[in-house]
């Protein structure tokens, strides 16, 4: 940068924050790439899920920091000094001076926009209606509404898959009558779940089995669930951006 005097400490801080966030994001990308490349049987799904959640969080942080420091970052330009070793660091120089995105990055973006334009209006990003687009695509509001609904809905479905086995079994018993009420068990499952008493911690049962002490009902599991739910609520607005 030519004149450091024109840069305030805030600007420097904004740059620094953006750099840190980007570095963190690159690192988690590399971790995922390494996992996928070098593990001969693929890594198991919980670890993949964890690293993708981590990546998503890093991206969210990066977007947040660039959004808050948008003005400062917009103002900045790079002016190489004469003393810059242009011969030995030509790659870095080109990267710094480049105004447009690299061709293959542009290809990615247009590909992504192409997919998106099939079902939603692109507004300022798109190049008019494309071939695949149907009339009355989703606008920005619809898309964000869809995402807000889809996250919790997916969780509900997963929970039903894992916990609704006993309702299924009841189904098989009275097969004759359930043709027209196939959705019934699912509807029943949700309220029954809420009325169900909380699970006793394993430790309480074990203590009871070894000492015969009548266990006090300490609902640690529920506390944990509430805590996680509260955390999720806090993180939700950040994730939607």
């Amino acid at each position: 940068m030519q004149s450091t005097s024109s840069m305030t400490t805030e600007d420097l801080k904004a740059l620094d924050v953006a750099r840190n966030r980007a570095a963190a994001m690159v690192k988690s990308l590399e971790v995922i790439e390494g996992d996928l490349m070098h593990h001969e049987p693929l890594p198991n799904w919980p670890s993949l899920q964890k690293s993708s959640a981590l990546l998503l969080r890093n991206i969210t942080f990066l977007l947040e920091s660039t959004a808050t420091n948008h003005d400062a970052l917009q103002r900045m330009h790079s002016y190489p000094l004469a003393a810059f070793p242009g011969q030995s660091q030509s790659n870095l120089l080109h990267q710094l001076l480049r105004k447009k995105l690299e061709p293959h990055v542009e290809d990615w973006i247009s590909e992504g926009l192409g997919h998106a334009s099939k079902f939603c209006e692109m507004g300022e990003f798109g190049e008019g209606p494309t071939v695949g687009q149907k009339e009355g695509g989703l606008d920005e509001y619809d898309v964000s509404e869809l995402w807000e609904w889809a996250g919790p809905a997916e969780n509900d479905i997963a929970r039903q898959v894992f916990t609704a086995e006993d309702e299924d079994d009841e189904d098989e018993d009275d097969e004759g009558e359930d043709e027209d009420e196939e959705d019934e068990p699912m509807k029943d499952a949700a309220p029954a779940k809420e009325n169900e008493p909380p699970r006793l911690p394993l430790g309480t049962v074990l203590t009871y089995m070894s000492t015969g002490a009548v266990p006090k009902v300490v609902d640690r599991a529920k506390d944990l669930r509430d805590q996680q739910a509260a955390l999720k609520r806090q993180q939700a607005p950040a994730g939607m951006r």
Binding site: P197, P198, R199, L200, L202, V205, Y208, P215
Partner: peptide, 8 residues
Amino acid sequence: LDPSGTYI
């Protein structure tokens, strides 16, 4: 013992 009927 466990009102929710959890198995161990």
